[in-house]
Design a protein around this nucleic acid. Structure first.
Length: 721
DNA sequence: AGGTCTTTCCTTTTT
DNA sequence: GGAAAGACCT
């Protein structure tokens, strides 16, 4: 027997050895899935002599990709950048950097993140004079993105809303294309389009990717499924791993049915069931099974373990959330004294915001910790400002970045001037940089001078970027833009400054990886990394307690796991309480959490907790009740558990009120039958006369110095007199 | 235009 | 409770 196969059970061996044709492994939690994936890759390389660049392995999160690279390095002693092990999005970015010009984009396209898309949609709504209080930018953004994936989505939307989404979508798509920006979905959509529309490129990748592996297939959405299908060549040497019980990304479009679809649409996949769990004790595994059994929509599985019964699961309930955190800290310290490492512990929570208290207490007790998914770093204002500056240096026609930086710090150019610039660029069909260069033509001398100064500054910064080491650009930005002066006036200036220095370090380190490219390209790649890795993983602690969300805990395992804030409203979130499907997803998340534990599992919560600065009393999470008493022990001050009753509808009330309110506002958004010459009154602009009507738009001349406005005809603020 | 005060949103989860 | 956007004043 080959030594690669040592320690694998029969099913696992089957999954490794069946290299040809489609294979689908249904892998329960802890069934050695990652091990199978890495050994399969090793087997392909060593036994089948497949060149490494001909293997494509796709994961969902950066962490999973990193993990797989590490494991492959362990198994075969090599990892090279030629190997395609990456997330869906990184893979697409890599392909697009090579070929996106075929779709009419520039290869230096920039990736914008979720916050940016929200901001952009908000700007677009405002430009159409749509009240962002009536139509929340976030909701519209979500709908725009869905419509972008599938135009038919629009058909299901009610009328006034449908119009808003449809027009905003058009503008959004056009805007991104003009500014050479792509969003996360575009990475997937454009790659698929590239392959479908260009046979030579498809042939190239079909030839390149002889063997494809996709992890966590239950989390693929429809675009990703389509992409995988398009990437697969006629040999169909594709291996997918999935577990329906661990599908936790439905909120971003993951479709569990894709597993079934794979079974039908690929030619007779070989199916392997991995049901032996190598991770957890039977107590933990049985509890997990008991919980997941409450889900209606699932295919029953039969997970078993040979690890023995193990310790009971402990439910701790404290009087306050603070007590809960203290209890966990003390419990960890107690175990560490008995010989556990800090690395053996994980604190898992539903929402990132929960991490804060743990950080405070751990810091105070000088306990080392690793905070995963600290999304906040790249979302901080100063970091967003700087990445916008960097993007703008690469592409001075990037209007989106321009809007972000033009008055940060203030440089005598206000909203009105910016509007003039944008209008001019629009009317003359000019690129932003050209419009700026012609500022003399349409701006007052003072404004034109300010703009000229800005342009000169940008030019000199661009020069510095080419002449000097890449991380010098951060200092140049700090000084030349006046940012550092601005920070001096800011209460939190010193913290922000520290963060900018951290960005500088990051720029320095990651540009090393791209040494062989020119400066602009280096910067471009680093910005791409930043965009695609929302997480800043603090790896500076060798041995530390892991703090992370249940979502990012998927694929990881720990000797001791704490699942915290197990309260109705916190986990499951109250938004999910009234929706059976959402509740099932929360339950799968609970299942994922429980199955992370190898030896000990602590489930904790508190009677009283502060949320949004308000003190709340929460009920115990229904998931606690789903664990048979035999597996549980109690600790803590509060022994009594309280559960939410069906009759108690207080959680749902808020949501119902919200829906009712929205319906009410939508009702007022009725169609105006405006004609030329009609006298109207507008909530903010006052009296006016309709000058013209074209489609959904109309032009109204207002009195009292407001002037002429182009508005949506049906806007509720407009009433006919 | 720009600074300060007030209000609002937020905490779902990831790329 | 805290950040960021908006309202309001200079």
């Amino acid at each position: 027997m080959h030594k690669l196969l040592q320690g694998l059970n029969e099913k696992q061996k089957e999954a490794v050895l069946k290299t040809e044709g489609p294979v689908m492994a249904i892998a329960g939690a802890g069934s050695g899935k990652t091990s199978v994936l890495t050994k399969r890759i090793a087997y392909l390389i060593y036994e089948k002599n497949i060149p490494i660049q001909n293997i494509l392995a796709i994961t969902f999160t950066n962490k999973a990709a990193e993990e797989m690279k590490d494991r492959i390095y362990e198994a075969i002693g090599i990892y090279s950048r030629e190997m395609w092990i990456s997330t869906f999005h990184s893979m697409c970015a890599r392909i697009l950097r090579e070929h996106i010009d075929r779709l009419g984009y520039d290869r230096h396209f920039q990736i914008i993140d979720d916050d940016d898309t929200k901001q952009l949609v908000k700007n677009l709504l405002k430009k159409q004079n749509i009240d962002v209080k009536l139509f929340s930018p976030k909701t519209i953004r979500d709908m725009v993105l869905k419509a972008k994936q599938d135009n038919a989505y629009l058909d299901g939307i009610e009328m006034p809303l449908k119009d808003v989404v449809a027009t905003t979508k058009e503008k959004y798509v056009a805007y991104l294309e003009e500014s050479n920006l792509v969003d996360f979905d575009d990475l997937l959509l454009l790659t698929t389009r590239l392959l479908k529309e260009h046979d030579d490129i498809k042939a190239y990748y079909h030839d390149l990717f002889q063997y494809i592996l996709v992890d966590e297939f239950q989390d693929t959405n429809d675009i990703q499924y389509d992409l995988v299908k398009t990437l697969t060549n006629k040999d169909e040497n594709i291996f997918i791993v999935g577990d329906e019980d661990q599908s936790i990304y439905a909120f971003r479009g993951a479709n569990i049915k894709n597993i079934q679809r794979f079974k039908k649409e690929f030619s007779h996949p070989h199916i392997v069931l991995l049901e032996q769990n190598y991770r957890s004790t039977n107590t933990i595994l049985n509890a997990a099974n008991a919980i997941i059994k409450h889900n209606q929509s699932r295919i029953p599985k039969n997970l078993f373990s040979t690890k023995g019964e193990g310790e009971k699961i402990i439910h701790y309930k404290g009087p306050t959330a603070r007590d809960e955190v203290e209890y966990i800290a003390m419990t960890i310290l107690k175990h560490v004294q008995k010989g556990y490492d800090y690395n053996d512990f994980a604190v898992l929570y539903r929402a990132n915001s929960t991490s804060r208290q743990f950080e405070e207490v751990f810091m105070q007790k000088q306990m080392p910790y690793k905070l995963f998914g600290n999304t906040s770093f790249f979302k901080r204002k100063e970091i967003k400002d700087f990445t916008a500056y960097l993007r703008y240096l690469i592409n001075p026609d990037d209007a989106f970045s321009f809007l972000r930086i033009i008055s940060v710090p203030r440089r005598g150019i206000g909203a009105k001037t910016v509007e003039k610039i944008m209008d001019y660029a629009g009317e003359q069909s000019l690129a932003l940089s050209d419009a700026l260069n012609q500022a003399d033509n349409y701006l007052s001398t003072r404004q034109a001078n300010n703009i000229e100064e800005f342009v000169t500054m940008v030019n000199s910064l661009q020069q510095k970027l080419t002449d000097e080491p890449i991380d010098n650009i951060i200092d140049a930005l700090l000084n030349d833009t006046g940012y550092v002066e601005m920070l001096k006036k800011d209460d939190k200036g010193d913290v922000r400054y520290e963060n900018i220095l951290e960005l500088k370090t990051l720029l320095h380190e990651s540009s090393e990886t791209y040494k062989e490219f020119n400066k602009t390209e280096q910067l471009s790649f680093v910005l791409e990394d930043i965009a695609l890795k929302s997480e800043e993983t603090k790896e500076d602690v060798e041995d530390g307690v892991t703090l992370c969300t249940l979502h990012s805990a998927k694929g990881l395992e720990f000797r001791v796991v704490f699942i915290v804030a197990l309260e109705t409203g916190m986990f499951p979130l109250h938004q999910s309480m009234s929706d059976a499907r959402a509740l099932e997803e929360e339950r799968r998340l609970m299942y994922v959490g429980v199955t992370r534990a190898k030896e000990r599992l602590y489930l904790t919560n508190a009677s009283v907790r502060q949320t949004y600065g308000q003190t709340n009393q929460n009920m115990d999470s229904p998931f606690l009740r789903e664990i048979p008493e035999d597996y549980l022990d109690y600790e803590g001050y509060v022994q009594k558990r309280t559960y939410y009753q069906q009759s108690d509808r207080s959680h749902i009330k808020a949501k119902e009120q919200f829906i009712a309110k929205r319906k009410e506002t939508l009702k007022t958004y009725t169609e105006n039958t405006l004609n030329k010459g009609d006298k109207v009154i507008h909530d903010t602009f006052g009296d006016g006369v309709v000058v013209s009507v074209a489609g959904k738009q109309c032009v109204i001349a207002f009195s009292h110095g407001v002037g002429i406005k182009k508005l949506l005809k049906d806007h509720p603020a407009i009433k006919k007199k």
